Computed example of a mutant assay.
Amino acid sequence: MVHDPALPTLVLINSYTTSAELYRPQFADPALGSAVNLLALEPYGHGRTRAAYRHFTYWDSAIANLQVLEALGIREAFVLGTSQGGWVVVRMALLAPDVVRGLIPLGTFMDFESPRSRELGCWDGIGFNTPVVDALADPVGEDWAVPDEFVDGVFDTALGGVSGEEREFWLATYRANYAGDAGRHRLRVSTVNLRDRDGLHGRLDEVRCPVRWLHGTADQVYSVANAEEEIRMFTRSPEARLEAIAGGQHFLSASNPVEVGSAVMEFVRRWS
C-alpha cells in the first residue's frame, strides 16, 4: 500500500473464508484508487492473517485491525466490510469511534443467527454451518486441503457460482490458505465464529458515525427485509441509509463493483 496522506483511507474487510483477494475489483478500479487509499485487512484465520492463539473471535479481529491502523499512522479511516466483515467494521466503530469516520457494510447482518432473522427470509446459519463444524472436528494429516465442494458451496451461495478461471483462482487460494491440520482448525474456528457469534442489536445505538449499507436484492444469505429493520437501529448515527442494489449478490463488491465503487466514492466525499 502506498499511502497518500492527502486522501482518505478506506479499509476493506473480507467475508467468511475468503481473503483480501475478494477486493481485486476495487484495487483494479482507477477511479476508486485515485479517490481513497485502499487497505485490505483480513480477519484472523483468513488469508495470510494468523492469531498467536487458536481460538479467535470477531472482536479480536476488530482490535487487531485498529492496531494495524495505529501502526501505520492512520488516525482516521472509512471502513467497508462484506458479510462477516460488516460486523467486524461495526465492532471497530464501537471500539474506536474517534478512528472510524464512516461504515459501509455490504450484504451483512447485525443479529446472532436468530429465529427473527429466518422469519425475514435470511438463511438458516445454524443448519448451514453445523455440518461443517462437525466435519472439521478431528485432526487431519498435513496433506489435507479444503475440499473443492466446500469452496464451490461458498461461491454458489454468495455469488450464484463462479466458473472457469475465477473458480480455479479461488480453489487454489483456498487450498493454500486452508492446508494441513492448522488450516483445518482455522477453518473450523472461523465457522464456529460465524455460527455462534454474539449479536450487535443492543450496541448499534452507540455507533456515532454515518452508515451507508449496500445490499443486493439477489442476496441468498441475508435479506433486504432484514437490512431494512437493522439500518433503523443506528439511531445515533448522523446518517444511516440503506441502498438496495438490483440483482446484487451476497458478495456485493464482487458481483457489482461499479455500483459499489460509485456509492463508496459518494459516501466518502460527503463525510470526509
Rank of each mutant, 00 (worst) to 15 (best):
P5H: 12
P5E: 13
P8I: 03
L12G: 13
T17P: 10
S19M: 13
A28K: 12
P30R: 12
S34E: 15
S34F: 07
S34Q: 14
A35F: 10
N37T: 13
N37Y: 11
A40I: 05
P43R: 01
Y44P: 07
R50N: 14
A52S: 14
Y53E: 14
F56A: 08
T57D: 07
W59Y: 04
Q67A: 15
L69H: 07
G73V: 08
A77V: 02
V79C: 15
L80V: 05
T82L: 12
G85M: 05
W87M: 08
V88I: 15
V88N: 02
M92Q: 11
P97G: 11
P97T: 09
D98M: 06
D98A: 11
R101G: 03
G102V: 03
G102T: 03
I104K: 01
I104E: 03
L106W: 06
F109I: 06
F109R: 06
E113F: 04
R116N: 02
R116D: 05
S117E: 05
D124I: 04
I126A: 08
G127R: 05
G127Y: 01
D134I: 10
A135W: 07
L136Y: 11
P139L: 08
E142T: 12
E142Y: 07
D143F: 06
V146D: 00
P147D: 06
D148E: 15
D148Q: 13
E149N: 02
E149S: 14
F150M: 08
T157F: 03
V162G: 06
G164W: 13
F169I: 09
W170A: 08
L171T: 05
R186C: 12
V192H: 07
R197E: 07
L200Y: 00
H201L: 09
G202R: 01
L204Q: 01
R208S: 10
R208H: 08
W213V: 07
L214T: 00
D219I: 03
Y222T: 09
V224G: 02
E230G: 09
I231A: 07
I231D: 03
M233H: 02
T235L: 05
S237T: 07
A240F: 02
A240M: 06
E243A: 04
I245H: 04
I245P: 00
V258H: 12
G261M: 13
F267K: 09
V268D: 11
V268R: 14
S272G: 10
S272E: 08
S272Y: 03
